[in-house]
Amino acid sequence: MTDKTQYLVRQEPYYQVQGQEVALYEAAYHARLPVMVKGPTGCGKSRFIEYMAWKLGRPLITVACNEDMTASDLVGRYLLDANGTRWLDGPLTTAARIGAICYLDEIVEARQDTTVVIHPLTDHRRTLPLDKKGELVEAHADFQLVISYNPGYQSLMKDLKQSTKQRFTAFDFDYPEATLEAQIVARETGIEQSVAAQLVKVAQAARNLKGHGLDEGVSTRLIVYAATLIGNGVAPRDACRMAMVRPITDDADIRATLDHAIDATFDANPA
């Protein structure tokens, strides 16, 4: 039997509560309802789940999905060893057996035929058929399935099937409100609250251009990067350019506008 303690979140992750999400998640977990967390990239979805796993004292198994992933990568496969073939559980099967929270990050990245293997786990059956092995795994009473999903993608392909969506309760995440976000950045990186607020200001300027030349705004994660650079002695304006502007655009006009926003925010010499 797998050692479930290896999947426990040992230290309390820092998570800044934004509303009622903690209580609501607890209720969903209590009823073992599958959960979907939606929101733009880098807004704290993964952090939230990690925090909840810690709070509930449940093991957490995270799978980062990608388009080359197959059902076997989730469920398991036969391997060959000296004595013949041996079955190896995939992360989803492991989670179902040991009663972990299984977090499928960026589920839309996986192809739809991969996605459907989760269906029997998400309804009243709570089972996982291992067709190749001829076994029907009954999910552990503590098992819960969580998926994350960024609805901002333009691709019509990267959308969940209705039949998949309709199996989950959902949380809508977005970038935190400005003061909260500044608090998060300050707490994560140890930089001053006032500097963090300025970084958030610049990020918001970029977010305003979403749909006007930018596909995505600046994520909380990128703000944290900029703050980390500042913490390491990089000048704020350079840190902003490097961590928040350059990664998101190659468009010269947009770059100039955001550079100006940085100068205006950090009161640097205009030229």
Binding site: A205, N208, H212, D253, I254, A256, T257, L258, H260, A261
Partner: peptide
């Protein structure tokens, strides 16, 4: 013109 439009949107919504 385009830069100004971006300016209005980004910094001032």
């Amino acid at each position: 013109e385009r830069s100004l439009d971006l300016y209005l949107r980004a910094l001032w919504r």
